[in-house]
């Protein structure tokens, strides 16, 4: 049993009368691929913002990468990586400039940045286009680069907020290959997605409905429990059932 890297205990967030996240409790183990699903407005984004130290919780407690959410949000930020579909890299900078910039903001030294840049370009096969503007690259390459940059400072956890929206099926799977490899190396992955087939790639899943964690289990166990063929059925069953209430 490996260490726990995220642990929340009745974590809640209110905006006025509206309870966006209601007593969320779960743990994520080191090296796990943890999927976080939910309909629009179920509280996913709010929960991620709290866990990444961007938003202060209203009540409850949580530790991320071993640091307390209330007192050490700066340390947390230094020990996590973040990538979203909307913002990832600067289109008007070159590949090399992007790597250097993001390495720089995480405070890596000049020498380390140089090493990291060349090794990253090498492993991603981007040496030839290192000085090309990012805008000219295919989406799949950009995504790979965005992911690599998000984990450049060797965080313990990386948060991926809908990383594959609108991407073609082949590129989407190549991206998941990267996620698997990173997880094999011991990185913890916290990922949200609208693709239900991607939910099946996760080790464990948490499905949010109306600010609460409706279920938390492995995809297999969920499907067994609901007698469903696919995660899509499970998801529709859960989200619909709750809406009817």
């Amino acid at each position: 049993m490996s260490e726990t890297v995220i642990h929340t205990e009745k974590l809640s967030k209110r905006f006025g009368d509206f309870v966006a996240v209601d007593a969320l409790s779960f743990s994520v183990r080191g090296g796990e691929i943890f999927g976080f699903l939910g309909a629009n407005g179920a509280g996913k984004t709010t929960a991620i913002r709290m866990l990444t130290g961007l938003l202060a919780p209203t009540s409850g407690s949580a530790t991320v990468a071993g640091f307390d959410l209330y007192t050490s949000s700066e340390q947390i930020k230094r020990n996590i990586g973040y990538m979203s579909q909307r913002f990832s890299l600067y289109d008007d900078l070159t590949v090399r400039e992007n790597i250097r910039f993001f390495a720089g903001i995480y405070g890596l030294s000049g020498k380390v940045i140089k090493e990291k840049t060349s090794s990253l370009l090498e492993t991603l096969g981007l040496v030839e286009v290192a000085d090309a503007r990012l805008a000219s690259l295919p989406l799949g390459w950009k995504q790979k680069l965005a992911f690599s940059v998000a984990i450049l400072h060797e965080p313990k956890i990386v948060f991926l907020d809908e990383p594959t929206g609108g991407v073609d099926p082949v590129t989407r799977r190549r991206f998941w290959d990267m996620i698997y490899e990173a997880s094999e190396r011991g990185l913890t992955i916290f990922v949200t997605t609208h693709y239900m087939d991607e939910a099946e790639y996760c080790d464990r899943l948490c499905i949010m409905v109306n600010g609460r964690a409706a279920v938390l289990d492995t995809p297999e166990a969920m499907k067994r429990h609901y007698g469903a063929e696919s995660m899509n059925e499970v998801f529709l069953h859960l989200a619909r059932g709750k809406q009817a209430e």
């Binding site: 939910g38 309909a39 629009n40 179920a42 609208h194 899509n232 529709l236």
Partner: peptide, 10 residues
Amino acid sequence: TTGVDAVSRS
């Protein structure tokens, strides 16, 4: 249906 959850999509 881009960016819309599975329930609303169906």
